[in-house]
C-alpha cells in the first residue's frame, strides 16, 4: 500500500489523479478505520466458516445415500440440527454483531478529544467546499476538493448541504456520513501517518455523482499550520492581465479570489488554486494543460457540470492560465 502511494507520488505523470489503495477500506490509516478493518476481517472469516459448514452439511445431506437406499435422519437429530444451526448459531451471531457494532460504533463515532482542526464541509453539485473554522466559529480559510488534516490529531468534520444529499467518505480514514439538507452531521478524522488519500461522494446526488471526489492530505501538525496560514492569506497576485480576462469573462460571478473583486459563491474558491494538486473535484491533475482543458471543454470532461464552457481568445486564455497558475 505504501509502495503504491509512493509510486503515485513519484510518477505524477498519470493522466488521472487517482492511485490504487488510496481509497480503500482495508488499508486503514487512522485508528477508526483500523478498528473497522479488523472488524471486517473477523466477520469475513466467520462468514466463510459458517458458509462452509452450512453448505458442507447440505452436501452431506444430499449425497448421503448408501447403497441407493434413502436414509432418513432421526427426528431427534434433525431437531438438534435445526436448533443448533437455526437458533443457537444465529443468536451468537446477533450478540456478536450487536455488541461489537455498538462498541466500535461508539469508539469510531466518538469525539474523545478534539485536538485537530474543525472543518465545515459543504456538499455542492458536484464538488466539496472545505472551510476551516477557528474555535469561535470564524472562518479562517476556504478551499475546495482538498482536505488537509494534521497527523496524529483528531479533527472534527461538520457536514452540511444546501442542495441535495451527499455523503462524505474517505475510507482509509473513517466510515461515511451523509450531508443532509436542513441538518448538520459530524464525523472525526484522525490520520496516523502522513499521506495522500482519496474520498468520494457516496450518496447518489445527480449527474456528476460518479466523479465527485476529493483528496485528503495528512501532514505533520507544523506543516499543516503553515499550510492553513498560507490558505488564509488573500491571493498572491492581484494585478495581472489574466485577472482582467478572468473578470471580463464573468468567472468572478461564481468564483471567489480573495483580494480581488471576484466574490462569487457558486463555484469553488480559487484564491489558492495553484496550491491544489487536482482539478474538477479530484478528477484531473492540476497542470496547465488540464486547466485549459477544464475551462474550455468542461461539458466534455464532466457532462452536466454546472460550470459553463468558456472559450476565450488564445492570447486571453494564455493570460488566464498564467494568472491561475500564479495563485499559489
Amino acid at each position: 500500500m505504501i509502495t503504491a502511494r509512493l509510486a503515485c507520488a513519484v510518477s505524477g505523470l498519470s493522466f488521472i489523479a487517482a492511485c490504487e489503495g488510496t481509497q480503500n477500506v482495508l488499508a486503514p490509516a487512522s485508528p477508526d478505520a483500523r478498528l473497522i478493518a479488523s472488524l471486517s476481517w473477523w466477520m469475513f472469516a466467520l462468514a466463510v466458516l459458517i458458509l462452509i459448514v452450512t453448505l458442507g452439511l447440505l452436501l452431506v445431506a444430499v449425497a448421503l445415500r448408501r447403497n441407493g437406499e434413502a436414509r432418513a435422519i432421526s427426528r431427534r437429530r434433525a431437531t438438534i440440527l435445526v436448533v443448533l444451526g437455526g437458533v443457537v448459531a444465529p443468536i451468537c451471531a446477533i450478540v456478536a454483531v450487536t455488541v461489537s457494532g455498538a462498541a466500535i460504533g461508539d469508539e469510531t463515532e466518538g469525539g474523545r478529544r478534539i485536538d485537530g482542526a474543525t472543518v465545515r464541509v459543504a456538499g455542492e453539485r458536484w464538488w466539496w467546499e472545505f472551510s476551516y473554522l477557528a474555535a469561535d466559529g470564524e472562518v479562517l480559510a476556504v478551499t475546495a476538493n482538498e482536505l488537509h488534516l494534521p497527523v496524529g490529531r483528531r479533527s472534527r468534520i461538520l457536514l452540511e448541504s444546501d442542495n441535495v444529499i451527499h455523503s462524505f467518505w474517505a475510507p482509509n480514514l473513517q466510515g461515511k456520513t451523509d450531508l443532509i439538507p436542513g441538518a448538520t452531521n459530524m464525523l472525526f478524522a484522525e490520520p496516523e501517518v502522513s499521506g495522500e488519500w482519496r474520498g468520494q461522494c457516496a450518496e447518489f446526488c445527480g449527474l456528476q455523482h460518479g466523479l465527485m471526489g476529493f483528496l485528503v492530505i495528512g501532514e505533520p501538525p507544523e506543516d499543516f499550520a503553515g499550510w492553513l496560514a498560507a490558505q488564509a492569506e488573500p491571493a498572491a497576485v492581484t494585478s495581472h492581465p489574466g485577472l482582467g480576462v478572468f473578470l471580463s469573462l464573468g468567472c468572478g460571478e461564481c468564483h471567489t479570489i480573495r483580494g480581488s473583486t471576484a466574490d462569487g459563491e457558486i463555484g469553488p474558491d480559487l484564491t489558492h488554486l495553484a496550491s491544489r494538486r487536482t482539478l474538477a473535484a479530484a478528477t484531473l491533475p492540476n497542470t496547465r494543460g488540464h486547466l485549459a482543458g477544464w475551462i474550455t471543454s468542461t461539458q466534455e470532461i464532466k457532462p452536466g457540470a454546472l460550470m459553463p464552457e468558456i472559450v476565450p481568445d488564445p492570447a486571453d486564455l494564455q493570460h488566464l492560465l498564467d494568472f491561475l497558475e500564479a495563485l499559489e
Partner: peptide
Amino acid sequence: QAASAMISIPAGVQIYCWIATMWGAK
C-alpha cells in the same frame, strides 16, 4: 442492528429444516 441480525434466526431455521428434510433422501 440487533433487529437486522435477528432475521438470521428464521432464515437459519428454514435452511436447516430443508437440510433435515433432504438428509439422506433419494
